[in-house]
Simulated scan of single mutants.
Amino acid sequence: MKLYVMNGAGNRFAIFDARGSRFRMSPDMAVKTGARGGPLGDKGADQIIVLHDPLPGSDAQIFMDIWNNDGGHVDACGNASRCAAWLLMRESGGDNALIQTAIGVLHATRKGELSIAVDMGKPRLGWEDIPLSEAMHTHHIDVKVGPIDNPVLSNPGAVNMGNPHCVFFVDDVMATDIERLGPMLEFYPLFPQQANIGFAQIIADDHIRLRVWERGAGLTLACGTGACAAVVAGVRQHRLSRLCRVDVDGGRLDIHWRGSDDHVIMTGPIELEHEGEMPL
């Protein structure tokens, strides 16, 4: 079985090519594979990806199974989709790829030798779609940190990009104690399935600096669905334009929330760090 170690703007993945086999990932195996200092070295992996044959009747080339490094099974990962798409394009020699996930089929396009765009579909914005534990408008949700009359953080937006996101807009993202706030907010009672917590600093109406505490993975160098969610949340709060540059710890992503069809397009770099084989 082929094993690839790749990253998308720093978001690091172990990608197993299990097509044609009966291999299935398990929570324990995902934890051991992704562990810092484990088989992938000091960096470990943020997510573990398994490429399976597509389900019957699908036009997609693969089905992508996604695991966090805490053993949790999730439905979406934008940067992993871009990495998997690049592998498929290298294999086919083409400039397009169709990837089946638990949330549907994603279309990816080559934008450069090591740059891939993926159509992440429409954001889900209803409170029950995030999901939240109680009904409310999601352009601002009732989550505060600190004193009620003078909170440190407040008025985040909630967006589902295949997984739940809560996005706070802050004055200085590097001065925000994400490693303390992230775990607390990830398990906030309003999020029955936990949530990815984004912290976005607005540089201009088309440019933000973003860091994301990912549920089940912690603070990562990039989060593709988090970048999409931050731009959607910013547009809904009249802070950002629909075409936005997002600087993350590992590089740059470009997000376009198209007005024509409501789809979110994410474009960014990928890197192949290692490829090898391992016995099934």
Results as ranks from 00 to 15, higher is better:
2 K>R: 15
6 M>T: 05
8 G>A: 05
9 A>Q: 04
10 G>E: 04
12 R>K: 13
12 R>F: 09
12 R>S: 11
14 A>M: 11
16 F>N: 06
17 D>A: 09
17 D>L: 08
18 A>E: 06
22 R>N: 14
22 R>M: 11
23 F>D: 07
24 R>A: 14
26 S>P: 08
27 P>M: 10
29 M>H: 12
32 K>D: 12
38 G>L: 02
40 L>E: 10
42 D>N: 12
42 D>T: 13
43 K>E: 11
43 K>W: 10
45 A>H: 04
51 L>W: 04
52 H>T: 01
52 H>L: 13
53 D>M: 01
55 L>F: 11
56 P>S: 03
57 G>M: 08
57 G>N: 07
60 A>M: 05
61 Q>G: 15
62 I>D: 08
65 D>H: 06
67 W>L: 06
69 N>S: 13
70 D>G: 05
72 G>H: 07
73 H>W: 15
79 N>K: 05
83 C>P: 00
85 A>N: 05
85 A>T: 02
89 M>W: 06
90 R>S: 10
90 R>T: 04
91 E>R: 10
93 G>M: 01
94 G>F: 05
96 N>H: 14
97 A>E: 03
98 L>D: 06
99 I>E: 08
103 I>R: 15
105 V>W: 08
105 V>T: 15
108 A>Q: 09
108 A>P: 11
108 A>H: 09
108 A>E: 10
110 R>P: 10
115 S>E: 15
116 I>P: 12
117 A>R: 15
120 M>D: 10
122 K>S: 14
124 R>I: 05
125 L>V: 04
127 W>A: 15
131 P>N: 10
134 E>F: 13
138 T>P: 14
143 V>Y: 13
145 V>Y: 09
146 G>Q: 09
146 G>Y: 03
149 D>L: 15
151 P>R: 04
153 L>F: 07
154 S>I: 00
155 N>I: 01
158 A>I: 09
159 V>H: 09
163 N>I: 02
165 H>F: 01
167 V>E: 09
169 F>H: 00
174 M>I: 08
177 D>E: 15
178 I>T: 09
179 E>D: 14
180 R>S: 15
186 E>Y: 02
186 E>C: 07
191 F>D: 12
193 Q>F: 07
194 Q>P: 01
201 Q>P: 00
206 D>S: 15
209 R>A: 07
211 R>F: 00
212 V>S: 13
216 G>E: 02
218 G>V: 00
220 T>H: 08
220 T>P: 06
222 A>H: 11
223 C>E: 06
223 C>I: 03
224 G>I: 00
226 G>F: 03
228 C>P: 03
228 C>W: 01
229 A>Y: 02
232 V>M: 09
233 A>C: 06
236 R>A: 10
236 R>D: 11
237 Q>C: 04
237 Q>M: 04
238 H>T: 05
239 R>P: 00
243 L>W: 13
245 R>W: 11
253 L>F: 04
261 D>V: 02
262 D>M: 01
262 D>T: 00
263 H>F: 02
264 V>K: 03
266 M>A: 09
266 M>H: 07
266 M>Q: 11
268 G>C: 07
269 P>F: 01
270 I>Y: 14
270 I>H: 12
278 M>H: 08
279 P>W: 06
